[in-house]
């Protein structure tokens, strides 16, 4: 759609500007990852040296941090999916005082600033004298992730006909069979969408982890933060970011294609 022929010239123009704004810094970063110059101020020719450093033994701790991030995000999203789906189910099923309070508890972590959750959990963990290892980080992540799963599942439940559960029970399914064979499959898209969001939020989280973590349990965002403090390592971050970006693009593209491919198969 060209600008001149668009039916909404102003909106199209504003959107184009917004997209330039969104992608310009990312583009510069990607270009700089191939820039021979250490400071990225000027173009000094193509180079793959930053990628070479990234994959050398020198950068082993980056990959260890990535590994930790993936472990935390996996556990956090799985537990969030279980707790969040359960929460959405009862919130939808009952309209009681208890559920009003329950909904408040689900809603508030979403709107609470990260800094607040970070500092309160940090002080809480210190007060309880628990070791601030990967488990502590995972617990913190579950706390801010499960609400998102709940909301995703709740919106799926909106057009869910509760009477099919009664139907399943009438046809002889016991409680667990009704849950596993009827409710969970029907809610699966919501649960998965929520789980995916939880995974992204967890792997992306810096602030809460920063407050909660102890010594030696840096996740990837913390490692990147550490590197931004040293100008020497800047180009290596560019290279790492470019790889992560490519990976994100690939995943998003694949996820977007998923429903279409399935629709085509049906």
């Amino acid at each position: 759609m060209t600008l001149a022929r668009s039916r909404h010239p102003y909106a199209t123009f504003a959107t184009a500007l917004a997209l330039v704004f969104l992608y310009f810094p990312i583009l510069v970063l990607v270009l700089n990852s191939f820039n021979a110059s250490r400071y990225g101020a000027t173009w000094e020719g193509w180079s793959f040296q930053w990628y070479r450093i990234l994959f050398s033994a020198h950068s082993r701790d980056i990959w260890e941090a990535l590994q930790r991030s993936v472990i935390v995000a996996t556990f956090a999203s799985v537990v969030s999916m279980v707790l969040g789906t359960g929460a959405a189910w009862v919130l939808h099923r009952y309209r009681t005082r208890l559920q009003q309070a329950h909904f408040g508890l689900i809603y508030l972590p979403i709107v609470a600033p990260d800094v607040l959750m970070g500092i309160s959990l940090a002080i809480f963990f210190v007060a309880l004298d628990v070791e601030r290892n990967l488990t502590a980080i995972t617990v913190a992540h579950i706390t801010f992730c499960m609400s998102y799963v709940s909301l995703a599942v709740l919106s799926r439940l909106q057009d869910f006909d509760l009477s099919i559960v009664d139907a399943a029970r009438d046809l002889g399914a016991n409680r667990w069979k009704a849950v596993w064979l009827v409710i969970v499959p029907l809610l699966a898209p919501g649960i998965l969408a929520g789980g995916l969001l939880a995974f992204t939020l967890s792997i992306d989280d810096f602030v809460i982890t920063f407050f909660v973590k102890g010594v030696g349990s840096d996740t990837l965002p913390l490692k990147i933060y550490g590197m931004t403090k040293h100008t020497k390592e800047m180009p290596v971050i560019n290279a790492l970011s470019t790889l992560l970006l490519t990976f994100t693009f690939a995943i998003v593209w694949w996820v977007q294609r998923l429903p279409r491919a399935r629709a085509g198969a049906a």
Partner: peptide, 9 residues
Amino acid sequence: TNFLIRVYA
């Protein structure tokens, strides 16, 4: 995209 990376960019 990683939040930190966007700010860093």
